[in-house]
Amino acid sequence: MTRRRIAIGFCALIFIDTWTQISFKLASRQTGEFMMNSHWLRAAAVSPFIYAAIAGYLGAFLAWMTLLEHAPVGPAFAASHLEVVTVLMLSVLLFGEHLTAAKLAGAACIVTGIIMLSLSEARAPLPDHHA
């Protein structure tokens, strides 16, 4: 797999994960707040966005397995979590959510932490059975 294809794979994974979270939120806007009754469950079952989220879960799983086979695990790990950034941006743009200073500071800490974990993964020797 060429570097270019790996980069496309990373972008695809972030896109799919973002898609899944946005679909979840759109579905929950149709169902309203969680209630332990059949009405809420039925509303969830007929929301097309729930199926978009399920498709996203399956797509992310396939993309992740393909990436792990060909790409270094460090960057792959980062790509599988950096949808935090895109989801935050879209939650403001699509849903008008308000990002407080505390949330932004928290997001900065989390993203830095994820990058540190990826650097550590990239350095780690591969286990024998993956060699």
């Binding site: 505390a102 949330k103 500071a105 928290g106 997001a107 900065a108 800490c109 989390i110 993203v111 830095t112 932490g113 994820i114 990058i115 540190m116 974990l117 650097l119 550590s120 350095r123 780690a124």
Partner: peptide, 19 residues
């Protein structure tokens, strides 16, 4: 390793801030 522990602490702090 240290890098990993540092990353974990930062993420935990970020979650506490956001939550």
């Amino acid at each position: 390793d240290r890098l990993r522990v540092g990353g974990m602490i930062l993420i935990a702090a970020g979650v506490a801030l956001a939550g």
